[in-house]
Amino acid sequence: MRKVLFLVVIMVFIFIAGCKNEGDVGKDNEKDDDKNAAYALTGLSADGATDNRMVAVMVNNHPKARPQTGLSQADIVFEMLAEGNITRFLALYQSELPDVIGPVRSAREYYFDLAQGYNAIYVHHGAADFINQKIKDKGIDHLNGSLYDNDGNLFKRETFRKAPHNSYLQTDAIYEIAEDKGYDVTATYESLPFLETDAEIAGSPAPKVTVSYANNSNEMIQYIFKEDSGTYKRYNGEQQTVEMDTEEPIEINNVFIIEASHQVIDQEGRRAIDLESGGEAYLLQNGVMQEIQWENRAGRIIPVKNNKEVPFVPGKTWINVIPQQPGLQDIVTISSD
């Protein structure tokens, strides 16, 4: 009897120890999952949670708004024509969120459609009445600076610039106000496709690329590859794109230039841009250019070739959307000097 009781005690002890070990393994796996987590838009490792919801901000690119604040920390920046020959940015933030972003400008439909496609909270300052109605009809989760103009909490008007080039987003208030409006402030994201470390890229040399949105040389966009950093630096004409306060240059790992149909829709010169149909594209990485295509897959702009996704280099990405007419060959120049 004593032997039986002793065997039962031993078996219970082994069972408990096994359960404990399984629990420890589960905890270790959780730690490993955290350690291996990466941000969806950059592919770079994350120190903690990656479920903070993306924020998409309309950033002014008028000459009087340069240099801007907070662009260097955006995971992806879309650059598109707003009206006339001046571009405007949609900056997507998740892996980093600077304290201040701006100047912030008004909404356009193709920008907030992109923000919705990436499941981001869309932040802008002002909009035409018909645009406000479309934002409402489409159920866009948005924060409009016109409702918080210079409130000192979400938006601040700076004195060193004149309106409409002086409205700056104060990011500490974003999630609190978004939550008050009933918006989700966390989300789960599928990662973009990314290259393995040190993977080779096949293509043509592209150390210097010029994107001519206008005949005005001051509005030509240049990307110049730097061997030492493995990144592209961006210029508006002769002016390097830097952070206003620190003069830190924008460093870009992927420059993705895509053709899309553009149409002027009103007397103000506002446009409609087709970001659904796909088309021809150039992808610049590590000083090399690939001629590929782009597709809108589940709301995100993805490089593809032979119907397969072409991976990004882990890091920051800028996406230049140019008019399909005249197209890539006329608007984009690749040079070796």
Rank of each mutant, 00 (worst) to 15 (best):
R161I: 00
I135S: 00
P193M: 14
V123F: 04
I131P: 07
I174D: 03
D180F: 08
S212E: 12
T171Y: 02
G102S: 06
D172A: 15
F112R: 01
E176N: 14
K134T: 09
D198N: 15
L195G: 03
K208Q: 11
F155M: 06
A128K: 11
F130H: 15
N215K: 14
L192S: 11
G117T: 06
A214W: 10
D151C: 10
S217K: 15
L143I: 05
K162F: 14
Y111G: 02
P205L: 02
E196F: 05
G126M: 02
K134M: 09
Y189R: 10
F112W: 01
R161G: 04
V211H: 10
V211A: 10
Y148E: 04
G139T: 03
F160V: 13
A128C: 04
T171G: 10
G139W: 00
Y111M: 12
L195S: 10
D180A: 14
N144D: 15
K156A: 12
A206I: 02
E196C: 02
A163I: 02
K138N: 09
R108M: 09
E200C: 06
D149H: 14
S217I: 14
I121L: 15
P164F: 09
F194V: 02
N119L: 04
T171W: 03
E200K: 13
L169H: 01
Y175C: 05
N144E: 06
D198C: 08
D137K: 10
I201M: 03
E179N: 15
Y111D: 07
F112E: 00
Q170I: 13
V185Q: 03
K162I: 12
E158H: 10
S106G: 05
S212G: 05
K134A: 11
E196W: 01
D180L: 13
K134L: 13
N132Y: 13
Q116W: 10
E200L: 11
S146W: 11
L154K: 13
T159P: 05
A187M: 14
L114T: 04
S106E: 02
I201N: 00
K138T: 01
F194P: 01
A178F: 07
V123A: 02
E158S: 11
D180G: 13
P103Q: 02
A128H: 12
L154P: 05
L147T: 12
A178L: 07
S212Q: 11
K162H: 12
I201R: 04
D137R: 10
H142Q: 13
F112V: 05
S191C: 08
N215V: 05
P193Q: 14
G145T: 01
K136L: 13
F155G: 02
P193S: 13
S204Q: 14
F194W: 08
P205E: 07
V209P: 05
A163L: 08
V100M: 12
D198H: 12
K162V: 13
T186N: 11
Y148L: 10
L154H: 11
D184A: 15
K138G: 01
S217F: 10
G182H: 07
S106Y: 02
E176C: 06
A206M: 08
S191Y: 00
E190R: 09
K208G: 00
H125R: 09
A178C: 06
A187P: 01
A187N: 15
A214N: 06
Y122E: 08
R161F: 01
E179Q: 15
D141Q: 15
H142C: 12
A128S: 15
N166Q: 05
N153I: 15
D172C: 01
Q133R: 14
A178G: 03
V209Q: 07
A199I: 06
I174F: 07
T210M: 14
N166M: 00
G203E: 03
